[in-house]
Computed example of a mutant assay.
Amino acid sequence: MPGPFTTQLLSVTTGQAETVTDLTEDCERFLHEAAGGRDGLLNVFVPHATAGIAIIETGAGSDDDLLAALHTLLPPDDRWQHRHGTPGHGRDHVLPAFVPPHATLPVIAGRLELGTWQSVCLVDTNRDNPRRQVRLSFLG
């Protein structure tokens, strides 16, 4: 039986476009081994200054709507003080204030306790960094 705390690092390739990447299946695979049927908490954390974790519906347009809303709230133009990288890259460093770099979710009997249409997603607007790491940690 696994210990009370287990962690794993995922490598995710997001490419060179703004993306919402569904991590739900990765989380479920991790919990299948780490939780051992126990109740607890899953923490999902992206250790990057320009990405976040969102719990949203995917596949019905909500993921594209989120990117469109972020594009409106945080336009990729030259208004940002942080200016290295692709033009407008400073907005990517503001993203975690709107989409936090973590989420903590309930696990019941070893299974992720999400609503019917909820998915765990990596939100990445930074086109300069196509590779991301996501840390999954189970405490139970």
Results as ranks from 00 to 15, higher is better:
E57P: 10
P87Y: 05
A109Y: 04
H48T: 00
A109R: 15
T21S: 11
P106T: 05
D78L: 15
H82Q: 12
F5P: 00
V99R: 03
P106Q: 10
R79G: 11
H48M: 02
L114R: 10
D78Y: 04
L105Y: 11
L112F: 02
V120G: 08
D64Y: 05
P4E: 07
I56R: 05
A49R: 09
T104L: 14
A103W: 05
Q16F: 03
G110E: 09
F45V: 15
I108W: 13
H32K: 09
H102S: 06
F138W: 09
L9C: 08
T86F: 14
G88A: 07
T13I: 02
V12L: 06
L73M: 10
R111M: 02
D39Q: 05
S11H: 11
E18A: 12
V123D: 02
N43T: 14
G110K: 13
D65E: 04
V44L: 03
P2H: 00
D92W: 05
P106R: 12
D64I: 12
L112P: 09
A97W: 00
D78F: 11
C27Q: 13
E18Y: 08
H48S: 01
L73I: 07
D64L: 15
L66M: 02
G85Y: 15
Q133F: 00
L42T: 08
G15Q: 08
A35I: 13
R91K: 13
D124I: 00
D92I: 04
I55E: 04
H48I: 10
S119P: 00
P100I: 06
R91T: 09
M1W: 09
T14M: 03
R131P: 00
L105R: 01
G36Y: 08
P47E: 01
Q81D: 13
G61M: 14
V120Y: 10
P47H: 10
R38H: 07
V44T: 08
V20S: 13
D26G: 05
G52C: 12
H89V: 06
P100Y: 04
P100R: 03
G110R: 12
Q81Y: 03
L42R: 04
L9W: 06
V134R: 02
G36S: 13
